[in-house]
């Protein structure tokens, strides 16, 4: 398929997805998450909308870097202290545990695992990503504080890899969340992952890893793509 054909096809798909988003409605919202009225203990009637009451549905905003030397210093600190979210999304997650062993030891480079998205600033998408997992990935990604970085591991995140024709795994990760560094291979060895971290550090120090802002800028495009394939969208548009 040529590039032109592909582009027209993508545009067509986007048009369809917009229609899809509009009429998707509340089909998949669970009964306990529906907007409804409940009686409070004191007898008054209050409206609850669990999806939006517990999470902020506000749009992300672009956040400008600080000026000059302050931002440079902070970028250096960010580069030397990469906290990776411990979330294995596919087969590549088996390549991450060796990084904490004596043989590879990522702690030398200031890289460590963090158990919660609130405290991590790097997200490794490890290999193929099914639609079901993508939904969780989006939620988790949006909960991470900005500036945040995404490392895409393996060829499945680039063009679908060996699952390019599967009905349940996505083909191109960068249509759903912005990616800073791709680490090619099937599977990449832990050394490749370390090289990916080194590349990410370079990007951060050069001030080029501003993909969180890019996500905010192209928010509508990303959301349309996400909603096109996540059919049971029963969460706020932006949840953090």
């Amino acid at each position: 398929m040529s590039e032109k054909d592909m582009n027209s096809k993508v545009n067509e798909m986007l048009a369809r997805s917009e229609a899809n988003v509009k009429n998707s409605g509340k089909k998949f919202v669970r009964p306990e998450d529906e907007e409804r009225e409940v009686v409070a203990p004191d007898g008054s009637i209050i409206k609850v909308n669990p999806i939006y009451d517990y999470f902020s549905g506000a749009r992300p905003e672009e956040e400008k870097p600080r000026n000059g030397i302050v931002e440079k210093f902070l970028n250096w600190a960010r580069a030397e202290s990469i906290w990776v979210l411990g979330f294995g999304t596919g087969c590549g997650s088996i390549e991450i545990p060796p990084l904490v062993t004596p043989r590879f030891d990522m702690f030398r480079f200031g890289v460590q695992m963090r158990p919660t998205p609130r405290q991590s600033n790097a997200f490794i998408i490890s290999g193929y990503l099914s639609v079901k997992t993508l939904k969780r990935v989006i939620r988790t990604y949006e909960q991470m504080p900005s500036p945040k970085y995404v490392l895409a591991l393996g060829s499945c995140t680039i063009n679908g890899g060996m699952y390019y024709d599967s009905y349940s795994t996505i083909n191109r990760l960068d249509h759903y969340i912005p990616v800073d560094v791709y680490i090619a291979g099937c599977m990449p060895r832990p050394e490749a992952l370390l090289a990916g971290f080194a590349k990410l550090k370079e990007l951060i120090k050069a001030g080029k890893a501003e993909k969180a802002n890019e996500y905010a800028r192209n928010f509508d495009w990303y959301k349309a793509n996400q909603k096109k394939i996540v059919k049971d969208w029963n969460m706020p548009d932006y949840n953090w």
Binding site: S56, E63, F73, L74, A77, R78, E80, S81, G110, R118, N121, P145, S146, P147, A212, W240
Partner: peptide, 16 residues
């Protein structure tokens, strides 16, 4: 490393 972590945490842009 703890000092770097501290400064990085101070430099986080979004707050909830």
């Amino acid at each position: 490393q703890p000092w770097i972590n501290f400064f990085k945490n101070i430099g986080v842009r979004t707050t909830i």
